[in-house]
């Protein structure tokens, strides 16, 4: 246990007859960037939902930082250091980029039942939020209503919000989804900067990004983990080639 910050044990989830997560057992080691790849519909997002607490698991256990968090709410898991981003951008479009991040800082500060004082002018919250925006290269866009940011900027904002929860573990669901070439370069650079400072579970379809960033890779097919290992091991794995990478190479 000591060598895993996150351990999934026999995790299952079905939607009707469809087994979306099928007996997933997986260790994520402290400090590593662990990529999870798999074809469309393999159940990657569902797995992240289960680990983050957005979706309940049918059976199995989720151990995080030596504690069983299987029954905790998403908010409780966040307070323990488990943060996530969303494949489909999930921000507060009517709030400025700064306030999106400042709210995450506020959530950590523990006193949100204050009825007085203008929260949007709290320097302490804003300055810390600003540092996270700067990390993803959005410092100059802080006061723009986040709904008006470009798609790539919104992806960056998702990251900044997750960072602002001061996580131990980041669950990133396709941070590159829908970004153009230049934008995706920028996000990959940002991820490279985060690597080592946080433990990261990265779901990504962009194989260049995955194989250049990941310390280890797990392959999910039809809800099952068919392989886990170093990128070169996984790439050489015949089962993986047949099930997944083969079609990529074609």
């Amino acid at each position: 246990m000591a060598d895993a910050i996150l351990r999934l044990e026999g995790l299952r989830k079905a939607y009707g007859a469809l087994k979306v997560t099928d007996d997933v057992t997986l260790d994520v080691r402290p400090g590593e960037l662990h990529a999870i790849i798999g074809p469309n519909g393999a159940g990657k997002t569902t797995l992240i939902h289960q680990v983050s607490g957005l979706a309940a698991s049918d059976s199995g256990r989720i151990l995080f930082d030596s504690a069983d968090v299987t029954r905790l709410t998403m908010a409780q898991r966040v307070h323990r250091g488990l943060a996530r981003s969303f494949q489909i951008t999930s921000i507060l479009p009517g709030f400025s980029a700064l306030e999106n991040v400042a709210l995450a800082v506020q959530a950590r500060s523990g006193s949100s039942f204050r009825l007085f004082g203008d929260a949007s002018r709290e320097r302490g919250l804003n300055e810390e939020a600003m540092s996270y925006l700067a990390q993803v290269g959005l410092g100059h866009r802080a006061i723009i209503p986040s709904g008006q940011l470009s798609h790539g900027e919104k992806r960056g904002l998702e990251l900044a919000i997750a960072l602002a929860t001061r996580p131990m573990l980041l669950l990133l669901d396709e941070p590159l989804a829908g970004t153009g070439h230049e934008e995706s370069e920028r996000v990959v650079e940002t991820l490279r900067g985060l690597k080592g400072r946080y433990t990261i579970v990265l779901i990504e379809h962009d194989m260049n990004a995955v194989f250049s960033l990941a310390d280890r890779v797990s392959v999910l097919v039809y809800g099952r983990v068919i392989a886990t290992g170093r990128p070169d091991e996984v790439r050489a794995n015949p089962e993986v080639r047949a099930a997944y990478l083969g079609e990529e190479a074609a």
Binding site: M74, F95, A119
Partner: peptide, 27 residues
């Protein structure tokens, strides 16, 4: 005052996107 406060900001945030608010640690 309430609307602009920390409390009000969480309330307004939850109106826009409750899942996002949970994902940063609010109930």
């Amino acid at each position: 005052s309430v609307v602009a406060s920390r409390f009000g900001r969480v309330l307004r945030g939850a109106k826009e996107n409750a899942v996002r608010m949970q994902a940063i640690g609010f109930a």
